[in-house]
Deep mutational scan, measured.
Amino acid sequence: SKICLVCGDEASGCHYGVVTCGSCKVFFKRAVEGQHNYLCAGRNDCIIDKIRRKNCPACRLQKCLQAGMNLGARKS
């Protein structure tokens, strides 16, 4: 099975251009559409994995963007 390129959980498919799990898919959509201005309490290098993905939305969003997630991406 495929793994989420953001948190490493089991992926549910290709979302916004990137193979991700459902949790990261929903997080990314809400983060971008809600125009959240997340700030990292650390050094913008928090570990984002299945267990810690909820700890720092700033670093999670950064990881989504680095993976290439794009709200305008067509479903493939």
Rank of each mutant, 00 (worst) to 15 (best):
C7Y: 01
R43E: 13
G13T: 14
R43G: 13
K63G: 06
K25Y: 07
S12A: 05
A11I: 02
V18L: 09
I48S: 05
V18G: 06
F27D: 01
A31R: 01
H36Y: 10
C64P: 00
C59Y: 00
V18D: 04
G17H: 04
Y38M: 06
T20L: 04
K2I: 10
L39A: 07
Y16S: 07
P57H: 13
A11D: 05
I51V: 15
Q35K: 14
V6T: 05
V32N: 08
R52S: 10
N55M: 07
G8R: 10
H36Q: 13
G8E: 08
C21F: 02
C14S: 11
T20C: 09
D49P: 02
E10N: 10
C64K: 00
Y16V: 14
R52A: 11
F28G: 01
G17S: 10
G34R: 14
A41F: 03
R74Q: 08
A11W: 03
C7K: 00
H15C: 04
L71F: 03
Q35T: 08
L61W: 13
R43M: 13
Q62R: 10
R52E: 05
S23A: 05
C64F: 02
Y38Q: 06
G42E: 09
D9Y: 04
C46Q: 00
G13C: 02
N37R: 13
D45G: 08
H36W: 04
H15E: 11
C40I: 01
T20N: 15
E10Y: 06
N44Q: 10
K54T: 15
C21H: 00
D9H: 10
Q66P: 01
Q62L: 14
N37A: 11
N55A: 09
K54I: 12
G17P: 04
C59H: 02
C40R: 00
L39W: 06
L39I: 10
E33Q: 10
G17C: 10
H15L: 07
N37P: 07
G22R: 06
C64E: 00
K25V: 11
C7W: 01
R53M: 04
P57C: 10
K2S: 04
V26R: 15
S76F: 06
Y16Q: 08
L61D: 01
F28Q: 02
V26L: 10
L39V: 13
I48H: 04
K75H: 15
F27T: 01
R53N: 08
Q35D: 15
D45L: 07
N37T: 11
E33W: 06
V18T: 02
K54G: 09
D45S: 07
C46S: 00
A11R: 07
K63Q: 05
K54P: 08
C40H: 02
A67V: 09
K25F: 06
K54E: 10
F27W: 03
Q66D: 14
A11E: 12
Q62G: 11
K75C: 10
Q35Y: 06
C59N: 01
K29P: 08
A67K: 05
S12I: 15
G34I: 06
H36T: 12
D9T: 07
Y16I: 04
I47Y: 05
Y16A: 10
C4A: 00
L61P: 01
G68L: 02
I51P: 05
R43H: 11
Q35E: 15
N44P: 02
F27M: 00
C64Y: 02
K29D: 13
T20Q: 03
I3L: 03
Q35A: 09
A11C: 05
R74I: 10
G17D: 11
A31M: 15
L65F: 12
F27Q: 01
R53L: 07
H15M: 09
D45Y: 04
G22L: 07
S1C: 11
G17V: 03
R53H: 07
C64T: 02
L61V: 06
C7G: 00
L5M: 05
S76V: 04
S1R: 06
I3A: 04
V32M: 15
C64L: 02
I48E: 13
L65C: 08
K54Y: 11
R43A: 10
G34P: 03
V18S: 09
Y16W: 14
P57L: 05
D49N: 09
P57A: 10
C40T: 01
G42P: 02
K54F: 13
C24Y: 01
V32C: 06
T20H: 04
R43F: 10
Q62H: 13
N70Q: 12
C4G: 01
G72L: 12
E33T: 10
G68M: 04
A67W: 09
A41H: 11
R43N: 12
G8T: 08
V32E: 13
I48M: 14
L5S: 08
A11V: 03
H36E: 13
G72D: 14
S76L: 12
G72T: 06
L65K: 06
A31S: 12
K75F: 04
V18F: 03
M69P: 02
K2N: 13
A58T: 03
D49W: 03
H15V: 06
H36C: 10
A58N: 11
G17T: 08
C24D: 03
C59G: 00
L61R: 04
G34C: 04
C4D: 02
V26M: 09
S23F: 04
L5N: 08
C64Q: 03
E10A: 09
V18R: 08
F27K: 00
L5K: 15
K2D: 09
H36G: 12
R52G: 11
E10C: 03
S12V: 06
Y16L: 06
I47W: 04
A58M: 05
G17Q: 08
V26T: 09
I51Q: 15
C40P: 00
V19N: 15
D49A: 05
G34K: 06
A31V: 15
S1F: 10
V26D: 14
C4E: 01
M69D: 03
L61N: 02
C40E: 01
A41S: 08
F27L: 01
L61S: 02
C40F: 00
D45I: 06
L5G: 06
C64S: 06
Q35H: 12
G34H: 08
L39K: 13
G17L: 05
D49L: 03
N70S: 15
Y16T: 11
C40S: 00
L61K: 14
R52P: 08
C24A: 00
Q35R: 13
D9N: 05
L65G: 09
I48W: 08
Y38G: 04
A67C: 11
I3E: 05
G8H: 03
G13H: 12
D49H: 03
C21Y: 01
S76E: 10
L65V: 07
C7P: 00
R52I: 15
S1H: 13
M69T: 02
F28K: 00
G42I: 11
C21I: 01
G72P: 14
K2C: 08
Q62C: 13
G34S: 08
V19D: 13
V6I: 13
K75A: 15
Q35L: 07
D45N: 10
C4N: 00
M69Y: 02
A58D: 07
L39F: 11
C64H: 01
G13R: 14
Y16P: 05
N70P: 12
G42A: 13
G22K: 09
R52L: 05
I47P: 14
N70T: 10
T20Y: 07
G34M: 06
N55D: 14
C14W: 10
A58S: 14
R53T: 10
L61C: 01
K75T: 14
I3S: 05
E33R: 11
K2H: 06
R52N: 14
V26Y: 13
K2F: 03
C59M: 00
E33D: 10
